[in-house]
């Protein structure tokens, strides 16, 4: 399972966010270029309809493939009260013929995206990953070289951390606490709950850029 929160940031403040994250992390960012294919089970396959994502990491010298299944969010009064979404998430590295394999099993391509951006990894009470990406759609099937931004001017920020049934309380606390560092630049909330951009972002970004001379630390 994993703990996750999301938020959005205006593209003009992404440099400031990067400076903040790099300051917190201490190591340079990891570039991201992920081709994400969302597949859904074909008609009549499965007792319930199902969805699986194939992620192709195009940033690697030889692209690598991962299958990801995101399950339902934890429910109940306890889950409602916390500000972080806890959900099941399973991943498996797979060989490059994964798409052909899932097509053969009876899955169909629902949509595909190219996510471009960067990631930072932290060890702060949990293994926290922050990704900042822009979503791009392909004008032609699988044509990642000709992708165009879906929401120009806006990027998605996602904070995730792996968790287990016996430690998710601690991981939720670690993620919540981490989000406070980013609060001047963006609101982070459970996926699906849009909180928009924060009014303090411009001032916080200006401050961050001026203290570092606008350069990554």
């Amino acid at each position: 399972m994993e703990c996750v929160v999301q938020g959005i940031i205006e593209a003009q403040h992404v440099d400031a966010l990067e400076i903040l994250l790099q300051g917190l992390c201490g190591v340079p960012k990891e570039r991201l270029r992920i081709h994400e294919l969302c597949l859904k089970s074909g008609a009549n396959l499965g007792t319930v309809s199902s969805e699986v994502r194939l992620l192709c990491d195009l940033e690697q010298p030889v692209p690598t493939w991962t299958v990801r299944h995101v399950g339902g969010a934890m429910k109940g009064a306890g889950a409602e009260q916390i500000s972080v979404l806890v959900r099941t998430m399973l991943e498996s590295k797979v060989s490059k013929n994964a798409l052909r394999f899932f097509y053969a099993l009876g899955y169909k391509l629902d949509h595909e995206l190219l996510r471009v951006g960067f990631a930072f990894h932290f060890q702060r009470g949990a293994r926290i990953t922050v990704t900042v990406t822009s979503a791009n759609k392909m004008l032609k099937l699988h044509a990642t070289e000709e992708a165009v931004q879906v929401t120009p001017g806006i990027q998605l920020v996602e904070v995730t951390a792996p968790a287990a049934a016996d430690n998710y309380h601690d991981v939720v606390a670690a993620v919540s606490s981490f989000c406070e560092y980013l609060a001047p630049l963006l609101h982070l909330s459970k996926p699906g709950i849009s909180t928009g951009v924060v009014p303090t972002a411009a001032a916080a970004a200006t401050s961050l850029m001026s203290t570092t001379g606008g350069k990554a630390l």
Binding site: S41, L45, G46, T47, V48, S50, V52, V67, H69, G71, T88, L90, E91, S92, K93, V94, S95, N97, A98, R100, F101, A104, L105, G106, Y107
Partner: peptide, 20 residues
């Protein structure tokens, strides 16, 4: 004629998908 190499966790993913 397809052979897919995956991590062991693919078994749990297949279980969650409930398609096979």
């Amino acid at each position: 004629k397809i052979v897919l190499e995956a991590d062991s966790s693919i078994q749990m993913i297949m279980e969650k998908l409930q398609s096979y």
